[in-house]
Amino acid sequence: MNSPQSMTMRDVFLGRLYAALKEGEKVFIVTDDFGAPTLDKIRSEFKDRFVNVGIAEQNAVNVATGLALEGFTAYAYGIAGFMTMRCYEQIRTNLSMAAQLRPLNVNIVGVGAGFSYDVSGPSHHCLEDITLMRLLPNMEVLSPGDWVTASRFAERSLHVNKPKYIRLDSKPVPQIYAEDAAVSLEDGFHELAQGGGTCVVATGFMTQVARRALAQATVPIGLVDLFSFKPLDEERLFGVLKQYRQIVTVEEGFIHRGGLDALIVGLLAQRGAAIPVRALGVDDRFIYDVGNRSLLHKLAGMDEESILQAVAKANAA
């Protein structure tokens, strides 16, 4: 790969939707009055396919549902915490339940996963979405770590006729994968680095942080980027994880509450594998401290240094 470029996931994602609209795809974009530079282009050129429902997430999901029931590919686009939690029951009833009976392509696109909106405080931190969304049957839950995977998910959103939750970072992120990299979305993960005794499993922005941390490690440490909770080839993931003696999970979410760590612990336990798992993430509290994302990571014990310490402890065990 040439020198990695930084881009925002949302611009890449919306850029693909813009192209799809140009190509005449049956797409509607519904927003709760949340914008982006690429969205400006869409709303000026495709007025009839861009719907601003106002600050009303419940209605955004309901309107998107109605559009999808009529055969359109619908996007409900807004801030991650609000597009999941304010309208959770709409997602449950109209997407998760309904999709068991009818094809329904609604894509909840949440911008601002994890601590993306660092200084905006706990109302804008989104630490529950993975747990809440992976709980719902019939939903895909996609958590890209870079804009290349975000772009692959934009492609997938157009062609896989199911409801999906796609959590995007709000700020520019460097690419992890080459644009033509062979990455299987159906696998749900990619082994970025192979190591000796310890493997780190990360999702979303934390894959970026873990990558930077592990570049400083003195021994090879495995790194798995888990970019999709559903679909996920658990058997294949187990095949990778079982080669390690310890696993460290790292997520911008509450730990021990059904997120990434729970997924890994569960899949190991179901297969009788006694591999210890250390979970890094946010403990049972909100973070009111003001600071940038690195500071918040430090406070939560999930910054680069904390990752290295957790790996060292795991290796020593």
């Binding site: 419940q58 309901n62 559009l67 009529e70």
Partner: peptide, 11 residues
């Protein structure tokens, strides 16, 4: 009613 709005818009 919200779902109906989406349907009406699509129609």
């Amino acid at each position: 009613l919200g779902v109906a709005c989406g349907m009406a818009l699509a129609l």
